[in-house]
Amino acid sequence: MLETSMDLHLLHRAASAYYLDGLRQAEVADKIGVSRPSVSKLLAEARRIGMVRFDVLDVPTVDLTELAARLRELLGIESVRIAPGDQVQRDYRGIGDLLAEELRELEIRSGEVVLVSSGKTIHAVTGMGGMPQMPGVLIVPTVGGQQEPDPSFQTNETVRRFADRTGAQPRFIFAPALTSPTLWASLQADPGFRSVVDLWDGARAAVVGVGGPYRGRTSLTSVVPRHEPTLESAAGDICLHFFDADGATLTFPGSEFLVRLPLEVLRAIPSTIALAAGREKAPSIRAGAKAGLFTSLVTDVPTAEAVLAEAGIELPA
């Protein structure tokens, strides 16, 4: 759903009259019975919530189809979608558009489960307009994060945003990402907790972020230690599962008490869509693919080129 305190029907009437019918703002004001300044506010709000969207098309510099084919072959995954331009600078708008396309093609049905992870990219795109409507679908978090100070790692909030945008039904995990041994034991016996995490098994799809290399990383959930020797070689993480450049799993003291989707369950999901943008994530994407943690990738041109270049593959002209 579109989130606003204004009347959605009035917003739609104003936006349609101005952008589709080509009326001037004064004419829109007369047509819908509001003041001229009110029309300006209505149009600005329609743009803010994604009811009205603009695209400034890039001048093509590469063949996106060829670039995607080479990247798909390198990673050994089912699908690669590449947004033009630098999507980090564009607040991931193109990533969100391509995720919407991917979800539409999956034709997810009422009663099926879609899992959602935490992370900056995931948090950004799940709040965007243009997502397909998925009534009756259950949106479920893959990790805990109830007490995280950074909104990007408050997975319940990301789930709620995504459910609002798609008309789906949210489910929440009321637990931190890292528990004490005592809390861990209590959660395993808690019916409310089990009713949510049991939905992980048999999920139809998952949307996950790809964390960058541990060393020098600026965005990291608060429960992961910042200077942990066992993670120094981590090329990245997905759903709080850290892996090295060869895709081998890495652990740290206490990681057995992380509230996260088990690796074997993640690998069994039919369609796991990884979202990643940023050249620094090139080794993370390659390592995540080696670990078998996603089946599809949505990225942008600079990131795709960086992954191929790191592998020594000549870029398409």
Rank of each mutant, 00 (worst) to 15 (best):
V52L: 13
I122A: 13
T249S: 14
D198L: 03
D86M: 08
V223L: 04
R104S: 09
Q154Y: 15
E66F: 02
M128P: 11
D55P: 02
A124I: 09
A205M: 05
Q87W: 10
E314W: 03
P141D: 08
G312A: 01
S16N: 13
A317M: 03
F294W: 13
V223H: 15
G278E: 00
V140H: 03
S118E: 15
R72I: 06
V259S: 01
L106G: 02
P84N: 01
R160N: 08
E105S: 13
L98H: 12
R286A: 15
G211M: 03
M131Y: 00
R70P: 00
A68L: 09
L293V: 14
G212I: 04
S79F: 05
G211N: 08
R13M: 09
R217Q: 09
A235Q: 12
G292S: 10
T4Q: 13
H123Q: 12
R81H: 13
H123E: 12
L275Q: 10
T142L: 09
S195P: 02
P191C: 03
V34L: 10
G247I: 00
V114P: 10
V39H: 01
A268D: 11
L250G: 04
A15G: 05
E157G: 07
G50V: 04
S16W: 08
V298H: 07
D55K: 13
R109L: 06
G211P: 03
L42I: 07
G111T: 08
R13N: 07
L187E: 07
F172T: 10
L263F: 03
G130D: 04
A168G: 15
R171G: 00
P176G: 10
S219A: 14
E73F: 12
V197C: 10
P316E: 02
G202F: 07
A163W: 04
G254H: 09
G312Q: 03
V114C: 05
S79Y: 06
P149G: 01
I32A: 06
H9E: 15
G127D: 04
V259L: 10
R48W: 04
A317Q: 12
A311Y: 03
V159G: 00
G278S: 11
A26W: 01
A276G: 06
P132R: 04
G192R: 03
I77C: 04
T121F: 12
Q25I: 01
A287N: 05
F54V: 03
A124D: 11
L293T: 05
R165N: 06
E232Y: 15
G247Y: 00
V210E: 06
A203K: 11
G144N: 02
I173A: 09
V224I: 15
P181D: 14
I122G: 04
D58Y: 14
P141T: 05
E228Q: 14
T299H: 08
G22L: 00
Y214G: 09
I173F: 14
H123P: 08
I95C: 09
D55N: 00
Q87A: 13
G312P: 08
I95D: 10
D164V: 11
E66V: 13
P316W: 09
I238F: 05
G85L: 02
D190H: 13
A274N: 08
S195N: 05
C239P: 12
G312S: 05
K120C: 03
H123R: 14
G216D: 10
V114W: 11
S16H: 15
I77A: 07
T166V: 04
G247Q: 01
T272D: 04
L57R: 12
V301D: 06
L183Q: 15
K31Y: 00
